[in-house]
Amino acid sequence: MEKPACILVATDLSAHAGRAETRAAMLAQSMGAGKLVLLHVVPRLPLEAFTNILERTPLETEQRLLDAARAALEERAKRLGTQYAITTETAVRIGRAHLGIAEEADARDAGLVVVGGYGADLVRELFLGATAEKVLRRSLRPVLIVKQEPAAAYRRLLVPVDFSPSSTRALDWAQAVSRGAEVTVAHIYEAPYESTLRYASVENRVLEAYQAAARRQAQETMRGLLEPRRAAGTDFLQRMLHGHPAAGIRELAEEMRPDLIVMGKHGQSELEELLLGSVTKHVLFETHCDMLVAPER
């Protein structure tokens, strides 16, 4: 995979956002990215509120907030650039955060978008940052959601695959960010129409034979997926579980305690803009580690 020319990290300038900023800088350094861009989006609602409170004109209020954001960003960018020996830039936009992030990512053709899993507004973002989820739902670019304090490079990765083209892209990203880490590739399978057959009271021995055939097919497909990469010098651990994908990934995450889960994302559709894929959403909300979601292209 080519080195990303630009990594974009979105920050709300809170203490929690420092996790995403630091992780993005670490990846910019390890991946040899051309530059790291720190972005802050000033929301319009607080801007209107501050205008009333401070008794200033909208233009004056806007300028004060933009100046403060630029100063804070420049300070953080300078510190990260010096600490990690990387090129940094800053950007400020006004509007809805997830839309501003998408627009800036497109404008700079960002190879990776990094956002924090938690933000400053704990009422609006009770569990996972609302902005992070919206970015992930709509984005056609790889998105990394940072939930943990980045104490070191990623050391243990979990890569769930369904053998689609997006799984291949997920493996590309896992290899790009792992740098010698332990990478476990997992497939959670169910035989087609298995639940229907079970409700139809099909005998257990028939179901077991059906499941065994599905497992053999999955193992063969897994070999075909990984053998070319192993031949090129990359090794992987493998896991194969029977059950529902979301539950299986959660079980593996609890057992393995990975630093990062890397998943593929299927092609964008109108429905996906409204509803994040069920498996991805479950993993996002039910695991505590960082998560990178890579689209097919």
Rank of each mutant, 00 (worst) to 15 (best):
L126H: 10
A181Y: 08
R108F: 06
A110H: 02
G111N: 10
G119P: 14
F163W: 08
R93W: 05
A152R: 15
S178H: 06
V143I: 13
E182C: 08
V185A: 01
D162Q: 11
V146E: 04
L158Q: 03
E103D: 14
R93L: 05
T168E: 13
R141L: 08
K147E: 10
G116D: 00
I94M: 08
A174L: 01
E182Q: 06
K134H: 14
A151G: 13
K147D: 09
E182F: 04
D121V: 09
L128V: 14
K147G: 09
I94V: 12
G180M: 05
I94P: 04
A170D: 07
V185F: 02
D106H: 13
A170S: 11
V113E: 00
I145W: 02
A151C: 12
F163A: 03
S164W: 10
L144I: 11
R108Q: 14
L144V: 13
T184D: 00
R93C: 04
G119F: 02
R179Q: 11
L112A: 03
A151T: 13
G116W: 00
W173H: 05
A105P: 09
E104P: 15
A153R: 11
V177F: 03
G100H: 01
D172T: 04
G117C: 07
T168M: 12
R138N: 12
D106M: 14
E182S: 07
G100Y: 06
T168Q: 13
S139P: 14
I101F: 14
G129E: 01
A132Y: 06
A153Q: 10
V159T: 05
R138M: 10
